[in-house]
Amino acid sequence: MTRVIRVRVNDQAHERQVEVRRTLADFLREDLDLTGTHLGCEHGVCGACTVLLEGEPVRACLLLAVQADGARVTTVEGLAAGGRLHPLQEAFRAHHALQCGYCTPGILLTAAAFLAEHPRPAREQIREMLAGTLCRCTGYQFIVDAVAAAAQAMSP
């Protein structure tokens, strides 16, 4: 069974026919070639596939593509504006907040939404936010540093 859906991804409109069983994550990766959204578990635990749906973080593996019909989605590819890295991306590089990079897109998007709500977060709040995404390489410490630094850089 298939349906035609219209989705706005990173400010670009797409119309595609999809199988109803296709998840949003597979739709982004397979149909739109946006392979920055990674699949780590396909059951909502690891968080690598986290994208923004109408500005809020969601697991792209736990949403059917048909459910995103008419919605606005932001993926990691849409984070850098006009070729310039987002302050979070800059901070992640400066603080060595990534190693293999597989969990990084999900963390960046979760953190972007978080900083919009918490412009001056405490480190404990940052850790609680990060707990929704598993990283197996970094031990999280430099990610906490990077998010704190990005918050500083972004605060007016």
Binding site: T23, E42, G44, L62, L63, L64
Partner: peptide, 23 residues
């Protein structure tokens, strides 16, 4: 299918195999 945070993992694992999903 409402939020899907319990149902979709079960679908992905094929532990739930409904003939019909009512979103």
């Amino acid at each position: 299918l409402a939020g899907g945070q319990s149902l979709v993992p079960l679908l992905n694992f094929r532990l739930a195999r409904p003939a019909v999903v009512v979103d």
